[in-house]
Computed example of a mutant assay.
Amino acid sequence: MSEDELKGRAAALLELHQPGNPVILPTVWDAWSARLAVDAGFAALTVGSHPVADSVGKPDNEGMTFDDVVARVGQITAAVDVPISVDIESGYAQTPVRLIEGLLSAGAVGLNIEDTVHSDGGRLRSSDEHAGLVAGLRAAADASGVHVVVNARTDLFLRQDGDEADRVDRAIARLRQAADAGADVLYPVGRHQPETLRRLTSELPLPVNAIGVPDQDDPASFGPLGVARVSFGPFFQAALAARGKEILARWA
């Protein structure tokens, strides 16, 4: 893919993020699931680490290598003609330059980066450290000439880190720091009550990514809460797996 094509896809992906009118980015894991989503009419996709890991028989939380991810992403971008964002977990202990170069070489124009460090015992990065990584990714993307869409994720809610009473405050502070470092989108990953999600979207300075359970949530519920992006994490694959088990059980 040429640099101009990558630039165009990156710009298109970023433009889709409109608070109150969220882009729905189905989370896929291979060429088949990507084609399924694009044929259904979706304009961009995310590639999820958990579904990809499941599809190749490896554990999530960086049980794959970054090269494994790049190879799979290349198969997906060869199969569909839409912008692709990739969950790169906590970075697979790679440098920002290596991460950006690998994603662009596979035709991806966006990334999620989380603050749990799987290569270092699963510890949580400090706010400064996470912001530093975001800044490194932004600098590497700028140097490449492509404005890769950086989605900065915090796992405070997922990990139930610290006191619940100030968890939202700490998440907002952490994500604001990531925004200042060059993120384009902010991802307080977790299943939130509407009032919590509304507070996050109103107090954070950039478009906010929420997670949706595709066979349970109401697609129309996210816009009024100010969400700009909805992705499915592992839940689309899980819903298909549940239906698959029902079909297979008739024949077992």
Rank of each mutant, 00 (worst) to 15 (best):
E5H: 11
A12N: 14
L13W: 12
L13C: 05
L14M: 07
E15T: 12
G20M: 03
I24H: 04
T27F: 01
A34K: 00
V38E: 11
D39R: 05
V47C: 14
V47D: 00
G48P: 05
H50A: 06
H50R: 05
V52W: 02
K58T: 04
D60W: 06
N61L: 15
E62T: 13
T65M: 03
F66Q: 10
V70H: 06
R72S: 12
T77L: 15
A79F: 01
A79Y: 02
D81K: 08
P83M: 07
S85Y: 00
I88M: 10
E89I: 04
Q94S: 15
R98S: 07
L99N: 03
L103T: 07
G110K: 10
L111H: 07
L111N: 10
S127V: 13
S127L: 07
E129M: 15
E129I: 15
A131W: 04
R138S: 12
A141S: 15
S144D: 15
H147Y: 15
V148R: 05
N151R: 08
D155S: 13
L158R: 11
L158G: 00
D161A: 12
E164H: 11
A165H: 10
D169Y: 07
A171L: 09
R174A: 03
R174G: 00
A178W: 02
A181T: 08
G182Y: 06
G182R: 08
G182S: 09
D184Q: 11
Y187R: 01
P188N: 03
P188A: 09
P188S: 01
G190N: 11
G190R: 03
R191I: 07
T196N: 04
L197Q: 02
R198N: 05
R199T: 15
R199H: 06
L206W: 11
D218T: 12
P219R: 00
Q237C: 02
E246G: 03
L248C: 10
L248W: 08
L248R: 09
